[in-house]
Computed example of a mutant assay.
Amino acid sequence: MPATTAPAALLALHDRETRLGARPDGPGVVVEHVGRVVRRTGPAHNWNGVLWSGFTSAAEADDAIAAQIAHYTARGLSFEWKLYAHDEPADLGERLAAAGFTAEPDETLMAAEVDALALTDTVPDGIRVVPVTDAAGVDQVAEVHERAFGDDASRLRRQLLDALATTPDTVVAVLALAGDVPVGAARMELTPGASFAGLWGGGTVPEWRGRGVYRALIAHRARIAAARGYRILHVDASPRSRPILRRLGFTPLTVTTPYVYGPSL
């Protein structure tokens, strides 16, 4: 395997490309640099929120927090402030909570260079991994999401349908099928011109966990990313997926905490 980039350098590149350098990626989506904030605004079923912030004082942070609340609530939108552990000021999370945000569970930002991953072509017995290309496949992804995470998947369903209709080259969705029954699902976001491909929503229904379905979905997406010229994968890992990702070669970079204003996203 080739030598991998140091974690600090990967984190700095991630900040530049996926946060500061974020781009609109769907119909009706706008990415704006407003003062020392980068925010994404789109339809209500999309992800809306603050991608990056870099404040020089506590007063500047408080003013920006109030401005973002005003921006999104004027449009009737819930939104997320995606806080990373290295963001300044150090008490930004406390300031968000004081302003009415709710902190959701921490996740670990992990990344890996595709060429350095310990991937195999092995797929669990009885499983096949297939692409999602139509509304029926989107419905199956939503079914897996609800069974794997216990969340309502109506927003995800609309997001994937939008992507298939308008920007099919920027989102890859896949299913793991046992026969014709969906037991795992995942997606990958591909920003044109970027180094990073983002892995999202990887989930397995409870009765199929521990059999290698999640690893097969990682490997499948990694091969697609490499074929399309993306050299680094990144993922916000839950405690359940973090050990699997580490064994595959992913490195923890930092902790990220979603702070939500309004109904949960």
Rank of each mutant, 00 (worst) to 15 (best):
L161Q: 14
G21V: 02
A8V: 10
T56N: 12
V174C: 10
R228L: 10
L177V: 03
G210I: 04
T73S: 15
T102F: 03
Q68K: 02
S264C: 01
K82F: 07
F250Y: 15
G210L: 04
L20E: 13
A173R: 11
I232Y: 08
G54L: 01
L20H: 11
D87H: 15
R95Q: 12
V38S: 09
T167I: 11
A118M: 05
S238G: 07
A70S: 14
A22F: 06
Y72S: 01
A118V: 09
A44R: 14
L245C: 04
D151T: 12
T102H: 13
W47Y: 14
V38P: 02
S241Y: 03
W81P: 05
F250C: 08
T133M: 02
G262E: 05
S195F: 01
A97H: 08
H45V: 10
D115Q: 13
L10Y: 09
R40M: 14
T167F: 13
V255F: 02
R147W: 00
T191M: 12
S53F: 12
G210Y: 09
T56C: 03
M188R: 08
P258C: 05
H71N: 10
A85V: 02
H33S: 11
A194H: 15
A173M: 09
A176Q: 06
A186Q: 07
W47P: 00
S238W: 07
R158Q: 15
A142M: 03
I224Y: 12
A194L: 01
T204N: 05
V235W: 00
F101V: 03
E60A: 15
P2H: 09
G229L: 10
I218H: 14
T4L: 10
P7L: 07
V30G: 00
N46Q: 13
V132K: 08
D121W: 06
S238Y: 08
A222R: 08
M110L: 13
L265V: 11
F79Q: 07
D134H: 05
R36T: 13
R221K: 13
T191Y: 04
R158K: 14
I224Q: 13
T166R: 13
E88C: 07
S195E: 15
L109D: 09
I65W: 08
R155E: 11
R157F: 00
T256S: 14
W81I: 04
G249C: 04
L156Y: 09
R187H: 13
D91C: 01
A135E: 15
Y259Q: 02
A58K: 11
A99N: 06
A44W: 05
A112M: 07
P105Y: 08
G193Y: 05
V181N: 10
E113A: 11
R128I: 11
G126Q: 11
D63V: 10
I69L: 11
A225R: 05
L160E: 03
E104L: 15
V181A: 13
T41Y: 00
R40W: 00
G21W: 01
I69Y: 06
P263E: 11
P24E: 08
V260E: 12
A197C: 05
F79M: 08
A98L: 10
P27H: 06
S57D: 03
T73F: 06
A98S: 14
E189C: 03
A111K: 06
A173L: 09
G126E: 08
E88M: 11
W200A: 12
D115L: 10
H220Y: 15
A74M: 00
T5H: 06
D25S: 15
A219K: 04
R247P: 00
A226D: 12
N46L: 06
